[in-house]
Computed example of a mutant assay.
Amino acid sequence: MALSRMSDDDEDGLMNEINMTPLVDVMLVLLIIFLVTIPAMQHAVRIDLPRASSQPEEVKPAHIDVAVQADGTILWDDHPVSDDGLRARIAEVARARPQPELHLRADRKVPYERVADVMSAAQAGGLTKIGFVTDPQPKKRK
């Protein structure tokens, strides 16, 4: 009886090499897809869109100078007005957009009631922005 080697592993065993054919097929298909789609992406339609600025436009509202003199006279932009005229003008400018600021300047000797009347008329007329203007005292020389 002769002893023979029973090593048929090379013919019946598993293949331990990677089959490259399916990988090459997939790569060729992807190459063809990319070659077809790239020229289509280059033919884009050019559109001139308007450019918008990100900065809001700041419109500075006008201001109205109202002065109360020492004798109680009210000046609207350096023109004397009566109490009824003051209320009418305040109602007129309160409708403007943007609403102007009321700069109130009062003499030192005017009673506070007169200034309070002007502020009350401005509030009743619809003005929401009131600023007080003061004149600094002159420096005394030694």
Rank of each mutant, 00 (worst) to 15 (best):
L3N: 12
S4Y: 11
S4K: 13
R5A: 12
M6H: 10
S7C: 11
D9L: 15
D10P: 07
D12N: 09
L14T: 06
N16F: 11
E17L: 09
N19T: 09
N19A: 14
N19K: 06
M20R: 04
D25G: 15
V26D: 11
M27P: 07
L28I: 10
L28P: 00
L28N: 09
L28A: 14
V29E: 03
I32E: 04
I33D: 01
I33S: 11
L35C: 12
L35K: 05
T37Y: 08
P39H: 08
M41F: 14
Q42W: 14
H43G: 03
R46F: 15
D48N: 11
L49T: 10
R51E: 13
S53A: 07
Q55C: 04
P56H: 10
E57Y: 11
V59Q: 15
K60N: 08
P61E: 10
I64F: 02
D65I: 02
D65K: 03
D65W: 04
A67L: 06
A67T: 09
V68F: 00
Q69Y: 03
A70P: 00
D71K: 02
G72A: 06
I74S: 02
W76K: 09
H79W: 08
H79V: 12
P80R: 08
S82V: 02
D83T: 05
D84R: 00
G85F: 05
G85L: 05
R87C: 07
E92T: 11
A94I: 04
A94P: 05
A94F: 07
R97P: 01
R97D: 13
E101K: 03
E101L: 10
L102C: 05
L102W: 04
A106V: 09
D107R: 00
R108I: 01
R108S: 05
R108H: 06
K109N: 05
P111M: 08
E113K: 00
E113H: 01
R114A: 04
R114F: 03
V115K: 00
M119R: 07
S120M: 06
A121G: 06
Q123A: 14
Q123G: 14
L127E: 04
T128L: 08
I130T: 09
D135G: 03
P136I: 11
P138C: 05
K139R: 14
K139I: 04
K140W: 01
K140H: 07
